[in-house]
């Protein structure tokens, strides 16, 4: 461990160790982020695909560079 790592903070009111720390708030925030991603993906269908032609990867020959 390097010498310059911070060991204490002046505003600290309690010490929480590795074993007792449960990042439940982080899990909730990440969950909200994934929910936003899912909703945006659904929204994307309406923004981009409805009314536009399909955009797809070509046939096998173009995939391997033969055509």
């Amino acid at each position: 461990m390097a010498s310059a790592t911070e060991q204490s903070e002046t505003d600290q009111v309690r010490e929480i160790g590795h074993e007792e720390y449960d990042p439940i708030g982080t899990a909730i925030l990440i969950g909200i982020y994934f929910l936003i991603l899912v909703l945006l993906w659904l929204f994307m269908y309406f923004v981009e695909f409805l009314g536009n032609g399909p955009t797809v990867v070509g046939a096998l020959l173009t995939v391997v560079g033969l055509a």
Binding site: R14, Y21, G25, I30
Partner: peptide, 24 residues
């Protein structure tokens, strides 16, 4: 995203933050 937010939450709880999102 997970590691950094979890580290911030750790700091917030050491500074007295509580609750599911109240620590923010």
């Amino acid at each position: 995203a997970f590691t950094v937010v979890a580290s911030m939450e750790h700091g917030a709880r050491q500074r007295g933050g509580t609750g599911y999102l109240g620590w923010l």
